[in-house]
């Protein structure tokens, strides 16, 4: 999902740059005013933590490996504003020290991965949490939220590439969304496992996530929502009107799983995300996305149940059935 320099034209780079400055600025203002001074070092350390967590490789079949993005993880652990600062810091350091990702594209990358992803992840997590309580509910919410955040961020990424004229929406959208529906599975699994591990050793760290940097500030929340809406209107909406002819046949017949942008983290049962019988690649992607979302939702619950059971057995190690 990382856009290098040279892929965005000036207008897209400037627009996304402004979005990022606004979002990061709002988060910094919120943190500067409402975070206790003792939490400031924690934000710095959390940024280093996400950076290192991204460096760890998770093996996938046939010698490939994937890694964590960590946007939803950061949002669930620290709250949305701190997560925005943390993810932005990670991207800034990666761009300036490792020449990883671009400098001019930094605005777009921050917008996708440090603003849209943590905010969507956090929003979905919070909404699900009001319905599903307990350890299983938490883990399931985390899993589904991480998957959605990854996919949504990749759609914004596709929108930026299309707006720049680098790739056609009809190509970029199915390719980006499709690949990230797969990598999102890895992201969801890792995030769930990490949260389960933290909840086993230091559950109190998860309880007070809101007090780190909360979204309660109304003006800050307004800025966040406004940014995502404007982003949607500018980057995604113009393309969702009837697709130009001719794209779909290129896009649907070639099957993008062979030209993956990043190696998929997990092999998926729905390898072919294009539902047969539907002509347009864009529509097919949306349908696949909805079906995928429902499946991921169900999977998250099942997996959360397994993890929550293990959690219980870890808390009561005396019960003989749980001894290994």
């Amino acid at each position: 999902m990382h856009i290098p320099d040279g892929f965005l034209d000036a207008k897209t780079a400037i627009a996304t740059g402004l979005f990022s400055i606004t979002g990061l600025g709002a988060a910094l203002r919120r943190a500067g005013r409402h975070v206790q001074p003792r939490k400031i070092p924690l934000i710095g350390l959390a940024a280093a933590f996400i950076f290192v967590a991204q460096m760890l490789n998770f093996p996938v079949a046939s010698g490939t490996s994937g890694h964590l993005l960590g946007a939803t993880l950061a949002a669930v652990l620290l709250g949305p504003s701190a997560a925005i600062i943390v993810m932005s810091s990670v991207l800034i350091v990666q761009a300036l020290i490792f020449a990883d990702r671009g400098i001019l594209a930094l605005g777009a990358n921050i917008f996708n991965m440090a603003i849209v992803a943590p905010l969507c992840g956090f929003g979905i997590y919070k909404i699900l949490r009001t319905f599903f309580r307990g350890e299983q509910g938490r883990l399931a919410a985390v899993g589904f939220a991480s998957w959605c955040a990854t996919v949504i961020a990749s759609v914004f990424c596709a929108g930026e590439l299309a707006w720049s004229g680098t790739a056609l929406w009809g190509t970029a959208f199915p390719a980006m969304a499709g690949v990230h529906m797969l990598t999102g599975l890895g992201e969801a699994t890792i995030t769930m496992l990490v949260i389960a591990a933290i909840s086993k050793t230091r559950p109190e760290l998860l309880e007070d996530n809101d007090q780190a940097v909360s979204i309660n500030g109304r003006s800050t929340a307004f800025v966040y929502v406004a940014l995502i809406v404007i982003g949607l209107l500018l980057l995604v909406a113009p393309h969702t009107s009837p697709l130009p002819d001719g794209l779909e046949k290129v896009a649907s017949s070639l099957g993008f799983e062979h030209k993956a942008i990043e190696e998929p983290i997990l092999p998926s049962p729905i390898k072919d995300y294009q539902v047969p019988g539907i002509q347009s690649a864009g529509t097919a992607t949306i349908v696949a996305g909805v079906i995928g979302a429902i499946a991921v939702f169900a999977l998250s619950f099942l997996f959360a149940r397994v993890l929550a059971r293990r959690h219980k057995s870890a808390v009561h190690p005396s019960s003989p059935a749980n001894r290994q």
Partner: peptide, 30 residues
């Protein structure tokens, strides 16, 4: 592979816990 993922994930979890503890000590030093 599942064991491996689980191990890596709990390593990440442990890293976070340690980071919060270190953040406290850094705050004290500051």
């Amino acid at each position: 592979p599942f064991r491996k993922w689980n191990t890596m994930a709990s390593l990440i979890g442990q890293l976070f816990v340690r980071s919060t503890e270190r953040a406290e000590r850094i705050y004290a030093a500051m």
